[in-house]
């Protein structure tokens, strides 16, 4: 048997091999999780992500079936295919979880997010902001002489690009709901 031939400085003094053996391409997936609407269920789902070091890019939750006492959690997450598969398996084995749908994998889906933008400015900037809002089909939901609040729904990408355009025109604040998503067709 060979002795340990260890190069100097090759690793830290850890009991575990800390390198990621599966470093692969990172994918973004949208998961719809149907859960019992009970106390602590959201903490349980979030705890899974924080406890195991997974990402949450966006999360929405609300009751969708009052009589059945069911909520729908929509999570946008990122990871290697193996991590995504793990996340789904770990969610599916939770007792209050009824169903896990990977909308990214199960075919085309519609994804929408609602966002509010506060844009402050005068003169040309103000006119330009209003013109762009029209192009993006954003509605004015509040207005003062020096500011607008726009409301817009769309894909996260659309909201991102609108935000980019508003930035030089006096964007002050954004509020986003996170993604709600459904698969297309029946």
């Amino acid at each position: 048997m060979s002795p340990l031939n260890i190069k100097q400085g090759s690793s830290s003094h850890s009991a575990y091999d800390l390198r990621d053996p599966h470093a692969e391409v990172i994918e973004s997936h949208t998961l719809a999780v149907i859960v019992d609407n009970e106390a602590g269920v959201l903490a349980r789902v979030i705890g899974l992500f924080s406890g195991r070091g997974y990402n949450i890019d966006s999360l929405t939750v609300a009751e969708v079936d009052h009589t059945g006492h069911l909520s729908r959690i929509t999570i946008v997450t990122r990871g290697t295919p193996q991590v995504i598969a793990q996340i789904k398996a770990l969610l599916a084995r939770m007792v209050p979880v009824h169903d896990v749908h990977d909308l990214t994998e199960e075919g085309p889906s519609v994804q929408r997010e609602l966002a509010l933008f506060k844009v402050a400015g005068k003169g040309e900037h103000r006119i330009e902001a209003l013109r762009l809002a029209e192009i993006f089909r954003a509605h004015v939901v509040d207005s003062t002489l020096e500011s607008f609040v726009f409301e817009m729904t769309g894909t996260p990408e659309k909201i991102d690009s609108f935000a980019e355009l508003m930035r030089p025109l006096g964007l002050r604040e954004i509020a986003r709901t996170g993604v709600a998503a459904l698969s297309r067709g029946v």
Binding site: M1, S2, P3, L4, Q8, S11
Partner: peptide
């Protein structure tokens, strides 16, 4: 297949100063 079977196999581990992979 890099198993240590006894104290004799550990020679060199002890001498490897500082950096030790675990």
């Amino acid at each position: 297949n890099e198993m240590l079977l006894g104290d004799d196999d550990t020679q060199g581990v002890i001498n490897a100063k500082g950096a030790v992979l675990v």
